[in-house]
Nucleic acid binder design. Sequence first.
RNA 1: CGCGGGGUAGAGCAGCCCGGUAGCUCGUCAGGCUCAUAACCUGAAGGUCAUUGGUUCAAAUCCAGUCCCCGCAACCA
Length: 557
Amino acid sequence: MSQKVLITSALPYVNGVPHLGHLVGCLLPSDVFARFNRLLGNEVLYIGGTDEYGTPTEVGALKEGIPVREYVDKYFNVHKETYDKFNLSFNKLGRTSTDTHTKLVQSVFLELKENGYIENKEIEQVYSIKDDMFLADRYIEGTCPKCGYEKARGDQCDKCGSLLDPVDLINPYSVISGSHDLEVRKTEHAFLKLKSMQGLVEDWIKTRVGWSKVALSIANKWLKEGLKDRCITRDIKWGIPVPDMPGKVFYVWFDAPWGYVSISQKWAEETGGDWKRFWFENDTRYYQFMGKDNVPFHSVMFPAEELATTTKWKTVDVLKGLNFLNFGDGKFSKSLGNGFSGLDAVELFDVDYWRYWLMANSPESDDAEFTFNIFADQINKDLNDILGNFVLRVLKFCRSKFGTNVPENFGNTDVENKLFSQLDEKVEEYNFALSNLEFRKATKALREIWVLGNEYIANSEPWSVIKTDEKRAMTIIHNSIKLIALFGVLSQPIMPGVAKKLLAFVGVEKENLWVNDNVEDFVNSLIVSGNEIFVPDTLFEKIDDVKVAELKEKYKG
RNA sequence: CGCGGGGUAGAGCAGCCCGGUAGCUCGUCAGGCUCAUAACCUGAAGGUCAUUGGUUCAAAUCCAGUCCCCGCAACCA
C-alpha cells in the first residue's frame, strides 16, 4: 500500500561551500532514503534547501563587499550546483530568503504570541559604534581575563576553555572592523518561553520511535537539564522582520526549520502539488535527516514551536541524527585548509564512488574517518574487484562464447535454487536496513549480494563446463546476466548512475523497478533469452597508489 | 564530580537494547581457478572484547567504579 512520506534534509547554512561532512550527514542519506521510498511506490515529498539569514551571511557579504542579496544568490548557486552534481533528487530545493517563508514565520510567531509563549525582555548587549550594529558574542574578541589569551571570543576562550561574558573581556574589539569603539546598550528582545513548554515536548518525545541513538541522547540531555527561555530576535538587518518590533529580525534557528514548510509551499506553488497533504494529515510519515549539531533545534525547539501554535502541524516521526565525518585526524573543514568541497570531490572521482563510500561509512554509531587510503581501498575492492569485475567477466565471456544475446536457460539446478534462496535472504536484509535508515548495514548487504554472484560463477565454472556441456554453460551465463540486472535494480538508491549503466548493459529499459521478496520471479520478469546485451570495456577505474599519494599531498589527508 | 559518544585481531568497523561457542571488510599467509581490471573463490593465522569489581549456571552484552580518546556546553549555524 502506498504511504505518504515526507523527507527533509537539514538546510545547510548558505555561507560557504558544502563539503563531504554536509553530504554524509544529511544530504546523501536523505536522498538514498527518498529514492528508496519512490521505488517502493510511496508518495514522496523530499525537501532540501539553504538557510540564508543571520549574522554570518551579513558579515560575509560585508567582507566580500557585495550586497547581501547578491552574496546569498552567489552561494545558493554553489550549493545548487553541488547538489545537482551529487544527483540529489529533491522535489524542491528551496531557500529561506523568500516571501513565502517570511509570511509563514511571521504568522507562526503571531500564533505563539497569541498563545502566550512569547515574552519581551530588555537585555544588555555590546554595540559597535563604527560597525553601527550590535555584536553577537562570537564577533567580539579581546584578552581573556582568566588566562591572558589575546584572542578570546566573547562567549568562550579557546585557550583555557572558560565560558565568558563579552563585558568581561579586557580591551575588547569588533571582529568585523577591528574597532575598539564599543559600548553596552540596552535593547529589547522577544524570548520563546521554552521553559513553559518543557512538558509539551517531553510528552511528545515519548511517543516517538526509531530515532537514532545520537539524536535521542542529545534530545534527552536538553530535556533533562531543563529547557531555558531563548532569545529569538536579533538586532541585525538581514533576516525576517519581527511584527511590531521595528528594526528586529528573527534569530535563524527560530526561522530556519520552518523552511521545510515554506519550501513545501513553494513546491506546491510551482507544481500544483498539495503540500497540506504532507503537513497536516496524520497518515504521513515524516523523516528528518541532520548532523548531530542540529539535533537540539529539531528535537526540542522546532517541535516545541509546532506544538505550541494553534495550527496542528505534522511533527517529525523519525529523526535521524548522524555523527561527523572527520578528515584524517582533524575536522573536515575547508577554513582550516584541510578537506575539500563537494565540488572538488566530484571533480576528482565519479559521483557514485562518493555516494557508495559515504553510505558504506555513514557515521551512524560514532564519528567516521575519511582518508584517501581508506577511500581508495574500498573503491578498488568493492566497486572494481567485486562488482565491476563480476559484470565484465560475465558479459565478456558471454560475448566470446555465445554472442551478444542472452543465451537460453536449459533448466536450473540445485546450485541455482541455493543461489536464489541466498539472494532472497540478502535482499530482505537490504530492504530492512534501508527501511530502518541503517545505511552502513544496507551497503554491506548490497556488497554481499555482489559477492554471491562471484561465488556462483567461481563454483559453477562455465569456462570448464562449456567443454563438455554447452547447454549448462549457457544456463549459468543466462542466470549471471539476470544477476547483473538484479544488481542494477538494487543499486538504484545508492548509485543511480551505476544502476542505469548496469541495466543498460543487459537491455532492461523499464525504470523504477524494485524487488521485495522472490528474487527469481523478479529477475525472470526482467530478462528473457535473446535480449541483446551491451559489453563495455570497463565499468570502474581503480585509484592507483600514485594518485592516492598525489591527493594526500594536495589535500593533506 | 558539567553533558553526550567512543575504547572489540595490524587498520577500519559490527555485535551490546532482548546475556549463552567473538563476527565482517582490508591487510598477511596457503591453496584453487584462469572467464574477468594480477581480478575471483576457498582455507589459515591473528583478539584475556580499555581496566577493576559485582549480579548470574553463563557477561563484549546487565550494574558500579577507574583510566584514555572525541565532541558539545544553549548569542556560530
